[in-house]
Design a protein around this nucleic acid. Structure first.
Lengths: 220, 220
DNA sequence: GTGGTTAGATAGTGACACTTTCCAATGGAA
DNA sequence: TTCCATTGGAAAGTGTCACTATCTAACCAC
């Protein structure tokens, strides 16, 4: 298939596809001659993956390139490749004060004790370098800075829920044979499944809110 | 406190605070005279809230204004205000094809049957207008378009988990008296707590991955 | 009365994700 | 063979976004 057909089948404009090729998000097609290339189903799939990462996962183009680079890199071990890909995903940025702590330090201690209590020894060991750990601490500290510190106490319950979710993810991942696919599935789980589950969560909130308060609910 | 102090205490530059005032994200200070305004602790809190929404929640400035407008609007009922605020949050954009269905239609049917099975009658009734429902369907359709349809079968399990989470949210919310605060807590739950829990989820994934595959794991 | 600060207006910046425009080289149709 | 739409590639342009910088006139403390 040529560029025009790839564009039509994916619903992505030819100019945008050229842009992705230029940026290295899509591998070049098979060169037929100096002025024509041929694309296949794998290109279409990759294009859909890229689009989903950008629009559903809200991942910047440069980051997509980096993440997919790790996914494709078969010179690394399985865990490393997966870790590298997941760690390249966008994270919560540094808080405003630069390094001003207090809340940050308090939350960090609390998170550490929760991890220890849960027996997450691997996560504890990775703590100093894991972006997920940093994101967690920063987000919780912001919450606490607004006066909702008590929310953090539920952390253990939430952590158990999230662990159950992770087990489901990895079970699902292991049903897929190829290593490249396994890493891809894990990345997709983080990039596409998270938004889906957040939408499901908001839907559950809507359900529960209307159950408790009805449709017009509360005073005006 | 004057602008310079507000800036120093929050770690946000004076120019940025002026920008937020201009955009209506912060209410103006108490005018002392033609060229001086006085700000209080409530301004500091609001500023931190805005910063958290923008940087942790990744919400566009215009959307923050809209969401906070709903939170502050005491002319509406409780449920409506909450719904309006949550529905104003950024959602998954339309898929590429414009309206090309098939996957979309299939997923929609599947989601509907899951909702029915769970007895989420309110969510089912809101289905046609709820942005969360749309986001869910679009994200799952993208997943399926990439060949991972089976993931959707776990939907019921995930939905039950998300409902449990929503119940925890609303329980927490109800411990807060003021209506304005209740709506704020719900919005914060969606905006700050979601990133925190996603970080927790990724941490759980790291833990479980290293448990199963070790540190170097898999072939190279 | 002088120097530093303030609110407010206007314009500028850099990142980002495309989009447009141009080109010469093809390749199928007439 | 001639014509003309299409192709890959390069380069410049566009619109949005979240600030950031510059300027002005008023004010206040010393």
């Amino acid at each position: 298939m040529r560029l025009a057909e790839l564009s039509e089948r994916s619903g992505v404009s030819a100019a945008t596809i050229k842009y992705y090729l230029r940026e290295g998000l899509l591998p070049p097609g098979r060169q037929v001659n100096a002025r024509t290339s041929e694309y296949d189903e794998e290109h279409l799939r990759r294009l859909r993956l890229v689009r989903a990462m950008i629009h559903i996962g809200r991942i910047p183009v440069a980051t997509v390139r980096e993440v997919l680079g790790h996914v494709d890199d078969d010179s690394l071990g399985h865990t490393i490749r997966l870790g590298a890909a997941l760690w390249a995903l966008p994270q919560v940025p540094e808080p405003d004060g630069g390094e001003e702590d207090e809340h940050l330090r308090g939350v960090r201690e609390e998170v550490d004790s929760v991890l220890e209590q849960l027996g997450w020894t691997n996560a504890l060991a990775l703590r100093t370098i894991s972006p997920s750990y940093r994101s967690l601490v920063v987000a919780l500290a912001a919450f606490r800075r607004l006066g909702y510190g008590e929310g953090v106490e539920l952390l253990t319950q939430y952590a158990e829920t999230m662990h159950r979710w992770a087990v489901l993810d990895l079970d699902f991942m292991e049903t897929h044979a190829s290593e490249v696919e396994q890493v891809e599935v894990a990345v997709l789980g983080a990039v596409l499944f998270e938004p889906a589950l957040l939408a499901l969560h908001r839907l559950a909130q809507e359900e529960e809110t209307t159950r408790r308060f009805g449709w017009a609910g509360g005073a005006s």
